[in-house]
Design a binder for these strands. Sequence first.
RNA 1: GGCGCGGUAGCAGAGUGGUUAUGCAGCGGACUGCAACUCCGUUUACGCCGGUUCGAUUCCGACCCGCGCCUCCA
Length: 467
Amino acid sequence: MALQIYNTLTRGKRRFHPIEPGKIRMYVCGNTVYDYAHIGHARVMVAFDVIVRYLRSQGWDVTYARNITDIDDKIINRARENGEPFTALTARMIEAQHEDERALGVLPPDIEPRATEHIDDIIDMVQILIDNHYAYQADNGDVYYRIRRFPDYGKLSGRNPEDLLAGARVEIGEAKEDPRDFALWKAADDDEPGWNSPWGWGRPGWHIECSAMSTCHLGETFDIHGGGPDLPFPHHENEIAQSEAATGKHYVHVWMHAGAVRVDDEKMSKSLGNFFTIREVLTKYHPEVIRFFLISSHYRSPINYSEDNLIEAKAGLDRFYSGLRQFAQIQPASLDQLATEPVYRRFVEAMDDDFNTREAVALMFDVLRDLNAAARDGKDAEARRLAAVLKALAGIFGLLQENPEHFFKGTGASAGLDDGQIEQLIQQRNDARKSRDFAGADRIRDQLLAQGIVLEDFREGTRWRRE
RNA sequence: GGCGCGGUAGCAGAGUGGUUAUGCAGCGGACUGCAACUCCGUUUACGCCGGUUCGAUUCCGACCCGCGCCUCCA
């Protein structure tokens, strides 16, 4: 089966056809850097990271751009609250985001354009829209997009422009011709952050930056545009209106949107204040646990962030590492080797079907079971082969990248016993076992368990891990 | 109100017009001094009502329920 992707625009899965053979140009809406990234951001970043990794594994030449919105009202307000220049805030938050990405194993995009570095491109596009009467400067100095000039408005989110008129809020002192019109350029006071433009001192509206930057880096028409679940309307709708009005070309072939993250079965939102930052979550769970949790659902399904679900993800990941523990030195199978494995064909089939990571994970568990059975039965060659296959499949997801011993034992710097003390106690216990002092042996095991140390006895010796 | 998505076993979560998803938890068994790890087996699963069909969880229609967007939010 060839690659199929669900397209928000057509509301269905279609076979993917690249604009240029073998190449995929992809743009994903990144974060507005006024605060630390939260798990909703993590989901989008991990989802598209997996998609890009998979596409590359299948031989596609992917150009992946993901922007940073580093000028906007929220940034200005937060910087003002903090009493710092907005550039200081954004520089700090960008660095923090990059740290979070590295922790989660998210590879950097090929291009990471920032709004403030594309002010000229933005101004050029706004000017084109004004010249073509798709935009106008209002009495308050703002430049607005003239919705009614764009007949296709609403095609992405399935909205009727007339309905939008009924629902549009009319603000006090409204300067727009039409309440549905949205800002391309916002006039600013002299003491506010801004840039000189043909319409005076000001700053870009939110939507125009993505139109300008995507066109600048990927061309007027490109293959895939992605983002979070709340972006189809109005953000992406507005992008389409801007770009297609400015270029006269079809803007994007496939629109992809990740599903929402809920927290304890409630909508996660800024206004409810129930969102978790990535760095908070990383203090509680191993980064791969978070990654595995995210990959264990389809990227478009809503997922629920909860203690139980993360614990379950950890249990699953523990099994994989447990199975690989005696195969730490095995290298992942090459793509050529993988191609001969029946399970890989099923893996590709699952992923080609709109990136069905859940199905693919189920196949990884199948491999794991066979691996454990082979290892138990002493079929060493087969076990090593399966370990290599498992590592290769996991590698496509950016999982199982750690040495299992390290995964289970951690840094050893945490509270409690250090590795040497633990191993000494295990030795004492094994001495007791040899002399059939099982009560004494169990006492030591319980003592270790109380400190979160779990023992596993094998013929070759006793393994331990920190829970 | 408008637009859209979904309701699958204790929980999480794929998928399919007829044949075991998978994981976690539970139970039984093997292994073990006992455990843990692992393997094997296992628990009335497909919201409700009609229709199409030899046969529907899977297609169609109605209904009930949940959720998302429509407002800053990924």
